[in-house]
Write a protein that binds this DNA or RNA. Structure first.
Lengths: 156, 156
DNA sequence: ATGGAACCTCTAGTCACTGGAGGTTCAAGG
DNA sequence: CCTTGAACCTCCAGTGACTAGAGGTTCCAT
């Protein structure tokens, strides 16, 4: 029954999460509206600490915030269904990570080739600048074919 | 001497780059201020087409725009120095891609483990939700130790 | 009572675009 | 010459997940 409350700073230290980020999580509804002191300072309980740790762990696994929101809901209403739903979200995240890996591996190979080839003595024959300028840039780096570079790997 | 000019739409089609993106490249100085028709429409020449293609190729390799800016300058002032500088920029990009790959591979392994373990029959024993809630979350996913999740992989 | 650390709100910036509203210009057909 | 409608124009807001800073207030130990 040591019902101790935490300041935002303490919560920040314990979760390794910046103060601004905690406030932001509250703003976007990942953390409940915090109880305030008479002076307006936020106070937190053990349950908030646990919830924030959950969020941080999920973020470390690269789950986007929307997924974290769903996972939080599932964790609070545990049951067979929750378990299946969590499994599905995690599988999607795994698939997304694997897709990014494939993309990045292709990119790495291309870049490595470019860098290794380097410039062969003659400045006018710099493989790097030549590759970038190449009109007939044959091999296809962008998978989407939608016109967007999509090298962007977003989060996680 | 078929000195033909292009509209922004034609340039867009030929480079697979959206019209808005072309305008935005102009705004941030990657493309020169465009010559306009009397009515204010942008017109482009062959050189702009080539420059934009260069930009697109570099973006496909994941170079951030600042790097693209540098590479463009180097391409326009070719020489031994340019070649070396380009090599350095490309090496940095390669290193950055490799770092992201390492990070993603760790992430993939952790996620795969989590997903494979699944929930073992008992709903209360869902490995996924349990892993996320884990207080003693032992292994270290965040390499920075700066407090930030840094699962974010930015661009390229 | 005081000093300074920690807290508060609000705004803007990051990266590289993307999308949309609301209005103008161009070129082809009648 | 007039109309139609596609293509163009500018300006603004939004994306994801924070981060940084200005300018002001509260807390708590001395």
């Amino acid at each position: 029954m040591t019902h101790q409350t935490l300041t935002i700073g303490e919560l920040s230290r314990r979760t390794n999460c910046k103060v601004q980020t905690i406030r932001w999580y509250e703003e976007v509804g990942l953390l409940p509206t915090s109880v305030r002191t008479s002076g307006g300072h936020r106070t937190y309980e053990q349950e908030h600490l646990e919830r924030l740790e959950f969020i941080r762990h999920a973020r470390e696994f690269g789950f986007p915030l929307d997924a974290v929101r769903s996972l939080l809901a599932l964790a609070n209403a545990s049951g067979q269904r929750s378990c299946e739903a969590a499994h599905e979200i995690a599988s999607e995240q795994l698939a997304s990570v694997e897709a990014k890996l494939r993309r990045l591996e292709m990119l790495r190979a291309e870049l490595a080739h470019m860098v290794e080839t380097g410039c062969r003595g003659a400045p006018s024959d710099c493989r790097i600048l030549a590759t970038l300028a190449d009109h007939d840039h044959g091999h296809c780096l962008s998978e989407g074919h939608g016109g967007v570079p999509e090298t962007s790997l977003g989060n996680g």
